[in-house]
Simulated assay, not measured.
Amino acid sequence: MDIILIPLLTILDKIIELYVLLIFVSVIMSWLMAFNVINRSNQFVLMVSEFLYRVTEPALRPLRKIIPNLGGIDLSPVALIFILYFLQMVIGMVIMRLIVAVPAQLIH
């Protein structure tokens, strides 16, 4: 069981890392678009922006309902990143416990 569970949890941890990176890119890209640093009429920029919106918005939408808007500052990405980091720590602890439990089972 541990032979399958440890790699699956490791893959889940890496997926969370990738998702956090996508959130960062989405936030930075929204700032760049808001300050007209990158052009919204560019097809590639529009395509990347839409992809990031579709990937991150389902997780951010429920948090936006809970976290109040602070005068145009959206704190939901920060809250989501904290939640994902917490989830990564939990996954890491589970992996550590599984790794420690495996040698103890081999002795008996």
Rank of each mutant, 00 (worst) to 15 (best):
I73V: 13
I66Y: 09
V55R: 04
F82Y: 15
R54A: 10
L87E: 02
K65M: 06
Q88M: 10
R54W: 13
F82D: 07
N69M: 10
F24Y: 11
R64L: 08
P68Y: 08
S41Q: 13
Y53M: 08
F44K: 11
Q43D: 02
V37L: 11
F24K: 05
S76P: 06
K14Q: 12
I38C: 08
N69C: 03
L84R: 11
I16L: 03
I16T: 00
L18F: 11
V55C: 04
Q88A: 04
I83Q: 08
M89K: 06
D74C: 06
M47Y: 05
R54I: 10
Y19P: 01
F51W: 09
I11G: 06
I83E: 07
E17M: 07
I23N: 07
L22W: 07
M47S: 13
I11M: 07
V25T: 06
G71N: 01
V55G: 05
F51M: 10
V25M: 05
S41E: 13
M47P: 01
E17Y: 09
P62F: 04
V78I: 11
Y53Q: 15
A34G: 07
P77C: 01
T56Y: 07
I83S: 10
V27H: 14
L60C: 06
L18I: 02
L12P: 00
L87I: 11
V25R: 00
P77V: 01
N69W: 10
T10G: 15
S49A: 14
A59L: 03
N39Y: 04
S41K: 12
M47Q: 14
V78L: 12
M29W: 07
L32Q: 07
A59Y: 01
L12Q: 01
A34F: 08
I16F: 05
R40D: 05
N69K: 11
F82H: 04
E50G: 03
E17Q: 14
I83C: 08
S30W: 03
F24L: 12
L21W: 04
R54E: 10
I73R: 00
D13S: 15
V78E: 00
L18Q: 00
N69Y: 14
V55A: 15
L18M: 06
L70M: 15
L9V: 02
P68G: 05
I23S: 03
V25Q: 04
S49F: 09
L52H: 10
M33G: 10
L87T: 08
L21A: 12
F35S: 08
L46I: 04
P68V: 11
W31F: 11
I23R: 07
S41P: 02
L46Y: 14
P62H: 02
L9Y: 03
V37T: 12
L12S: 13
L84H: 14
L80H: 02
L75H: 05
N36Q: 08
P77T: 00
M29L: 14
I23L: 15
K14I: 11
L87P: 02
R64D: 06
F35W: 13
F82Q: 09
S26V: 07
E50N: 15
